[in-house]
Design a protein around this nucleic acid. Structure first.
Length: 639
RNA sequence: GCUGCUGUAGCUCAGCCGGUAGAGCGCGUCCUUGGUAAGGACGAGGUCACGGGUUCGAAUCCCGUCAGCAGCUCCA
């Protein structure tokens, strides 16, 4: 007899050699029906695995994340079988699960097109309907290599496997087989509701020198309802896409004449300037000075800074009067020139020098993405010149500043990474250790959780990065703190220390929002275009009921403007319902409906974005409340 | 940069196998003066991304260029 311990602690006695599936059946027919796989003594395995002696057993169903993942993995195989049936010359490479679905990399010269998806899905449905058992067979590495001889991808996969036992899975009575560690669902019929999503190229092992494979993406969910919910979620996320909202709200545009260069429209510029105002105010509070350096500088400077050797491919150059100039991809060299324009005493350190610097980087054409990845952007840069003993304090100060700014914009969901010494680096191990420790200590003192990216630092120093996730689940870097021991040497930066000797300062590069363009894009998606009052391009719109109160509406408009509130009056020929609908479409925070009634009482009827009920308040009350929400940068609009 | 897809009115899109363009929204004028998520009529607006080619004839087929989209690679 075997003794099986279940997750709730109960013990079940079964015959030795019975499978996990048998146990599920013994527990209940419902469980047996939904069971997909098993976890025996902590290890994921097939439902058909036999149990001997004593074991801890968990039956895995689609309701758990692991169950869903198993289903997705099996669905990838089913898709692979469908593709291989339709295109027999297909060679399978690798088919893992990803968040919300799976993909399969295949080598097939004929491109698979979106029109083909339906055909593949039909074939998949056929396979699922046949409900063929999925079986595992194991062999030694040697046997396996012989088994897949001639298929370079599978040979490669086996060579890369850690285990000495290599497993294959097959269904359709051996008509389809693939190398795989498993586990898999017991039969193709348990696969759930799937959809092929897209196809794109992908390099083998991510190596651009290798052949480009086709990567077919799919998704699968236990029920139709869940699949639909997922597809709806994608639709909703698409509506929040900053490129879509940017067009709708007339915030910015891109043009063929300047690919990757954002054109900021008046409404977008309002948001931009509000961010700049706030940014400058906070930086003054943290004792930063502000500078501005030229956009292009003699090529000579970029040799000195090391950019020419390390970053030339991404730089723009131009010839002026027989000299070559480079458009700056970074602000630091210019900042160094300012630092060197006079002598400095140790008493001045730390010197915190900020710059909203416009940089140009020639990014590869395929990587551009709305405001998130552009070729011209404004960095909210700063360089802190300090003694090495001041690093930790300075880093902590930057962290404080960073979180304060993020909070103002309502961001809570971000993660922090610490990148350490890369293989290619300059500077002694000792200096790296000091620097990395300083960063780590600062994070620890602040009680911040962080992930370590070993070997991912810049060649001149370690760094801390702040990342944020947007609605489409892509992660984007906002802030960064980078220690730099190289630039001060290259530019021969000096300060006079208390002992009257010249010393080289440490330079800390840092950015909080990263790039203004990217940050605006993130804000647009974060708010879905419904900005808090202080950021809204148009804050208040006055809507007269009819022409009869147009004058009253215009009067309110001008008083609002005098109070520094961005307002317009909609004196169009539309009915009030249409005016409200339009204001909602423009995501107006406040709509003030005014008719004869309101005029008599010197009042306005306030309609708040997203709120059904309206409220009549006196003009003075509206001014007071709205004014306070602007100055406090309040996220909500409620009266 | 690589692979695949896309480019038609300000926006979103339709236009099958070639016979020189259409809808909705928006915009303009007029009617309407209406109390809380879209009143009505009329009208203007397009070198069908650009350049070649095939054809009697190209938005439509072919080639190239540019730009965008999805993904890969990259991201000091």
């Amino acid at each position: 007899m075997a003794k099986v311990t279940l997750p709730d602690g109960s013990i079940l006695n079964i015959e030795d050699g019975k499978s996990a599936c048998d146990v599920a059946e013994q527990i209940g027919p419902g469980l047996a029906k939904s069971a997909l796989a098993a976890r025996i003594d902590g290890k994921m395995t097939d439902l058909s695995t036999a149990i001997w002696g004593q074991a801890e057993l968990e039956i895995i169903t689609p309701s758990s994340p692991t169950g869903l993942e198993t289903m997705r993995h099996s669905c990838a195989h089913i898709m692979a079988e469908a593709i291989c049936t339709l295109w027999p010359e297909t060679q399978l490479v690798y088919g893992p699960t990803v968040e919300d679905g799976f993909y399969y990399d295949i080598d097939l010269d004929e491109p698979i097109r979106p029109e083909d998806f339906e055909k593949i899905e039909a074939k998949m449905r056929e396979i699922v309907r046949a409900d063929k058992p999925i079986r595992r067979k194991e062999m030694s590495r040697e046997e396996a290599l012989k088994h897949v001889a001639g298929n370079k991808y599978k040979v490669d996969n086996i060579r890369r496997a850690d285990s000495e036992v290599i497993s294959f899975y097959y269904h359709n009575n051996g008509g389809f087989e693939d190398l795989c560690t498993g586990p898999h669902i017991p039969s193709t019929g348990k696969c759930g509701e799937f959809k092929i999503m897209s196809v794109a190229g992908a390099y083998w092992h991510g190596d651009p020198t290798q052949k480009m494979l086709q990567r077919v993406y799919g998704t699968v969910w236990p029920t139709k309802k869940e699949l639909k919910k997922y597809l709806n979620r994608l639709e909703e996320a698409k509506k929040r896409d900053h490129r879509v909202i940017g067009k709708q709200l007339d915030l910015f545009s891109f043009h063929e004449e300047g690919p990757g260069f954002a054109f900021m429209h008046p409404a977008g510029m309002v948001i931009w300037n509000e961010i700049v105002d706030y940014w400058q105010k906070v930086h003054r509070r943290y004792d930063y000075s502000q500078i501005k350096t030229p956009i292009m500088l003699n090529e000579r400077l970029w040799h000195q800074s090391g950019h020419w050797e390390n970053y030339k491919e991404n730089m723009y150059f131009t010839d002026v009067d027989e000299a070559t100039y480079a458009i700056k991809p970074m602000n630091c060299p210019g900042g160094c020139l300012i630092f060197n324009s006079r002598r400095h005493s140790y008493r001045e350190l730390p010197m915190r020098v900020a710059e909203l610097g416009l940089v140009h980087r020639h990014e590869a054409s395929g990587v551009m993405h709305g405001l998130f990845r552009v070729r011209q952007f404004t960095q909210d840069d700063a360089h802190i010149f300090c003694k090495s003993s001041q690093i930790e304090d300075e880093v902590m100060g930057v962290i404080d500043l960073t979180f304060q700014m993020y909070r103002t914009f309502g961001f809570e969901d971000f993660h922090v990474e610490l990148s350490t010494k890369p293989e290619k680096h300059i500077g002694s191990d000792e200096i790296w250790e000091t620097a990395t420790n300083a960063l780590e200590q600062a994070l620890k003192h602040k009680g911040i959780e962080y992930q370590i990216n070993d070997g991912d630092g810049a060649f001149y120093g370690p760094k801390i990065d702040f990342h944020i996730k947007e609605v489409l689940n892509r992660s984007w870097q906002l802030g960064t703190i980078q220690l730099d021991f190289s630039m001060p040497q290259r530019f021969d930066l000096k300060y006079v220390d208390s002992d009257n000797t010249e010393k080289t300062p440490v330079m800390i590069h840092r950015a909080i929002l990263g790039s203004f363009e990217r940050f605006m894009g993130i804000l647009i998606e974060h708010y879905g275009g419904a900005f808090p009052l202080w950021l809204a391009p148009e804050q208040v719109r006055v809507l007269p009921i009819s022409e009869k109160t147009n004058d009253y509406a215009r009067e309110i408009e001008s008083r609002l403007k005098k109070a520094d509130i961005r307002a317009t009056a909609d004196v169009s020929d539309e009915k009030i319902g249409a005016k409200i609908a339009k204001a909602h479409e423009n995501k107006l925070p406040y709509m003030l409906v005014v008719g004869p009634k309101e005029r008599e009482q010197n009042a306005v009827n306030v309609r708040i974005r997203g709120v059904k009920e309206t409220k009549t308040v006196s003009l003075s009350e509206f001014f007071e409340t709205a004014g306070k929400k602007v100055s406090d940068k309040t996220q909500d609009l409620l009266f």
